Measured scan of single mutants.
Amino acid sequence: KKIKIKIKVYNPETKEVLELEIEVSEEEAEELAKKLAEELEKKGYKIEEVEI
């Protein structure tokens, strides 16, 4: 079964909002969402919402 992940991120420095969407297997979904959120935060983005 495929799971659709939508991530909306906001960069306070540039006032930019990015929306990302990807489909992955159920097993990958939670781990991938967690890794993406961590990487984006390292780059200065503030995570507003992660929906699985």
Rank of each mutant, 00 (worst) to 15 (best):
V17A: 14
E41K: 10
E16W: 08
T14G: 05
K1P: 08
I22E: 09
P12Y: 12
E19L: 11
K42E: 04
E21S: 13
E41A: 09
A33M: 09
E49R: 09
L20N: 02
E51W: 12
K15A: 09
E30K: 09
I7F: 11
A33H: 04
E48R: 05
E39Y: 05
N11I: 08
E27V: 05
E38V: 12
K2T: 14
A29M: 03
S25C: 15
E27C: 13
K35M: 07
V9Y: 14
A33R: 05
K1C: 14
E28K: 15
K8R: 15
E23V: 12
L40S: 01
E13V: 06
V50P: 01
I47H: 01
E16T: 10
E13D: 12
Y45Q: 01
E30D: 05
E23C: 15
V24R: 02
E41H: 06
K6E: 02
V50C: 14
L36C: 06
E28C: 14
A37C: 09
E21C: 14
K15R: 11
E31H: 09
V50I: 08
K8M: 04
N11H: 12
E51V: 15
K2F: 02
I5M: 04
V17C: 10
I5H: 00
I47Y: 01
Y10N: 08
I22A: 15
Y45S: 01
K8L: 02
K8W: 04
L40Q: 02
K34A: 07
L40E: 01
N11Y: 05
A37V: 14
A37R: 06
K35N: 05
E21P: 00
T14V: 05
E48S: 06
K6S: 07
E38D: 09
E49Q: 10
I52L: 09
L36P: 00
K15V: 03
K15G: 13
E19P: 02
I22N: 05
A33I: 10
E16N: 07
E23A: 08
E19M: 15
E30A: 11
V50R: 00
V9I: 07
K35Y: 10
E13P: 07
L36W: 13
E30P: 08
Y45T: 00
K2V: 13
E23Q: 13
G44R: 00
E39D: 08
I5W: 02
I3R: 12
L20W: 10
E27P: 14
K4M: 08
E41T: 10
S25F: 10
K8F: 02
L18S: 12
Y10P: 00
S25R: 08
K34R: 09
N11E: 03
K46Y: 10
K42N: 08
I3L: 14
K6I: 08
K46N: 09
L18K: 07
I52N: 02
E51L: 09
E13Y: 14
E19G: 03
L40G: 01
V9H: 09
I47K: 01
E26C: 11
E26N: 06
K2R: 13
E13S: 13
L18D: 06
E38T: 05
V50E: 01
A33D: 02
I47S: 00
E23P: 05
A29R: 03
E26W: 07
E30L: 15
E19V: 10
P12R: 05
K1D: 08
E38N: 11
A33N: 01
G44P: 00
K4D: 01
A29C: 12
K2W: 15
I5S: 00
E30Q: 15
E31G: 15
E51C: 15
E21F: 12
K42W: 07
P12D: 08
K46G: 07
E13F: 11
S25M: 11
K34Q: 14
K4N: 09
E13W: 09
I22W: 14
G44H: 01
V17Y: 13
L32F: 09
E41D: 04
L36N: 01
G44E: 02
I52H: 03
K35W: 06
L20Y: 13
L20A: 03
V50W: 06
K43Q: 14
K42V: 06
E31W: 13
K35C: 15
E16H: 09
A33E: 03
A33P: 04
E49G: 07
I22P: 00
V17P: 02
E41M: 11
E38L: 11
I5V: 08
A29W: 02
E28R: 14
K6C: 11
A29V: 07
I47L: 05
Y10T: 09
K2M: 15
V9L: 12
